[in-house]
Amino acid sequence: MAYSEKVLDHYENPRNVGVLDKNDDSVGTGMVGAPACGDVMRLQIKVNDDGVIEEARFKTYGCGSAIASSSLLTEMVKGKTLDEAGTIKNSDIAEELALPPVKVHCSVLAEDAVKAAIDDYKSKHK
């Protein structure tokens, strides 16, 4: 698979790898994918009192582009409001990373992950 420079950069120097306390009320956790499909992505966001995402962390089991997609995603969501983050589309990620067609599903997974994290946060603040 010939990957773009950006995928290789995120893969080799992944941003914001790690864990936030999932029991913290200000943290939303989204875990999507399945080992059987070859990728599992976990995105966590920490939201401040103004409803702005101030921190994001991820861990991903998957191919290079899955790792790059989630790493890029943590950079994209930081500083966004929940509503803004909710509008991130998989195509934004796929274009930014110039993903080959067979790898577009990795960006879909990233979009699912951010939606799941937002849902989790919202469910804690009903």
Binding site: M1, Y3, Y11, G38, D39, Y61, G62, C63, G64, A66, I67
Partner: peptide, 10 residues
């Protein structure tokens, strides 16, 4: 275990 093959290839 717990590592996906293609990312390991990379």
């Amino acid at each position: 275990n717990f590592i996906e093959g293609e990312s390991l290839l990379m």
